[in-house]
Amino acid sequence: MNMLSRPRFQNALKALALLALAVFLYTRLAGGVLFFYINQRFVAYTIFAIVGLVMVALSYRPTSRQDKADDALHSHYRLGWAGLAIVMAPIALGLLVPPQPLGAAAMQNREINVASQTRSALPAAVRAAAQKGAAERNLLDWLHAFSTSPNPAQEFAGQPVDVIGFVYHDERLGENEMLVNRFVVSCCVADASAVSMIVRWPDAASLPNDAWVQVKGVLQPGEFNGRALPIVVAQEVIPTALPNQPYLYP
């Protein structure tokens, strides 16, 4: 009899695989890297998943009490090597490739919402953003704020800016310019879209893609891709560590 098809071995295998997935999810949670993958309001769901996986794994524990129970419990699904390999793939990939939030590499493939794009949606968030003081706005708040104005380039000129984001050098930008960006994640990184501001800074070229920076400066009317929009003229660009929550949540 093939080892794989012995009921006891099957049960042990299934239990271990489920526990491995639970432990994997727990390490993401405990290591603080869960926010690289999903919106923070889904953390509770992940905790539920860990509990559920452990509960299901425990149901495969060997029965010692009565033979009758062994007869009554039966399962039809046989986990093969291929199935096991697929189920373990997330763990393998998660361990082989060190966790990293989406960054400059993902920018090339995604829509970039350079602040000033008009959006009719998100009324509540827009109102909240408009009430914030200029220096407290993050990149997403700025995007919302610009969307309320028919001519943001003029209206916001001279306002102070203090934002955090990662650097991305877009080909369409000038010599001393860079994009400073955050990804906005409503559910998981599959739906990430970037919000960006153009920053003018003499040493922009010295900052590599993906470097996290805090930018302090002043807004001035500018232009990108033929559209009028505000540009941050930086007074200070301070390298910072990766924030605990790399993404913004709408």
Binding site: L21, L25, R28, L34, F36, Y37, I38, F42, Y45, T46, F48, A49, G52, L53, M55, V56, P90, L93, G94, V97, P99, Q100, P101, L102, G103, A104, A105, A106, N109, C187, C188, V189, A190
Partner: peptide, 26 residues
Amino acid sequence: QRIQTFVTIFLGIFIEAVPFLIAGSI
């Protein structure tokens, strides 16, 4: 970088979906 982006998005979808799959299975 491409592989890293791939793994991050893959794990994002997977981690997001696992709670719902385990709930449905239960």
